[in-house]
Amino acid sequence: MPADLTGDQALDLTEAEDAEGRALAGLDALEESTVPTRPRWRRMLAAAYPPVLAVVIIIAIWQFLYDLDFTTDDVLPRPLDAWDAVSGFWHAGTFWPSIFGSLGYGALGFAIAAGFGTPLGLLIARVRPVRAGLGPIVTGLQNLPSVAWVPVAIIWFHLSPGTKLFVVVMGAFPSIANGVVAGVDQVPPIFLRVGQVLGARRLNLARHVIVPAVLPGYIGGLRQGWSFAWRSLMAAEIITVGLGHGLGQLLQEAQDQTDLAQGLAVIVLILAVGVAVEVVLFRPVERLVLRRRGLVVAGR
C-alpha cells in the first residue's frame, strides 16, 4: 500500500472518481439526522415534574381522607404528623446518623457482594460444569427473600454488624452474578470473530472485546444488586435493633411505640434514599454507557 495517500489531493483523483466521491459524500449527508435535540434543562424538567406531581396528588388524597374523619388518628395520621416525625429525628440528631448508618452498611455489603458475585458470575458464564451446577442455584437464591437468612445470620454472627452484612451480601450477590452471566451470554458472537480476525487472543480478546461488551449487562446486574442489598438491609436492621443507628431501627422503634406517623415517615425516607442512590449513581452511569452505544436515543 503506498504510504503517501494522505488525503484527496494525494489520491490524484480522476474526474470519474471525483464524481463518485461527491455522490458518496451526498449519500453520507442525506443519512445525517435532522431531528433537533431539546436543551438539557428542558429534558430534566420534563423528566422530573410528573413524579413530583404524582407525590403532590398522593399527599392531597391522604389529606382529603384524613379530613373525611372516618377513623382515629392512630389509624390514619395527618400528612403533617409524618412530617413532624421527620423533623423530630432532625432535632434528636438521629436523622443523618440513621441515613448514613444504613447507607454505610448497604454500601459495604454491596461492595462485598460485587467482589464475590462478579468472579462467581464469570465462572458460571465461562465454565460449563459450574454453569450446570451452580447456575440454577444462584438463580434460585435470587428469588429467596433475604429475610430468610436473618435467623441463620443471628445464630452465626449473633447481634453483630456481621449479621447485617451477611444478610445484605446474600441478598445482593445472586443478582450481580446473574448480571455478569447475562452480560457474557449477550455478547454477539460476531464481536468475538472480529476480535480474532484482528488478531486478539485470550487476554487481548477479554480486555478489548469481552469486558466492554459485557458492561451494559453488568451495570444492570449491579443496579438490581443494590436494590436487593437495600431491601435486605432494612429487614436485617429491624431485627438487629440496638446496633448503632439505621433506618430499620427507626422502623422498629415506630412499631414499639405504636407511632404510625413515624412508621410512614421512615418508609418515605427509605424510599427517598433508594431513589437518590438510583438517580445519583446508577442511572447516569447506565445512561452514559447505553447512549454511547446508541442504545437509547439521545435528546429525548
Binding site: 454477539p188 460476531i190 464481536f191 470473530r193 472480529v194 480476525v197 472485546v209 466492554p212 461488551a213 458492561l215 454507557v289 454511547r292 452505544r293 446508541g294 442504545l295
Partner: peptide
Amino acid sequence: SLMFQEAALYPW
C-alpha cells in the same frame, strides 16, 4: 483480513 455482511464495529 475478513469482512462480514455486518460492519460489526464495536459500539463502545
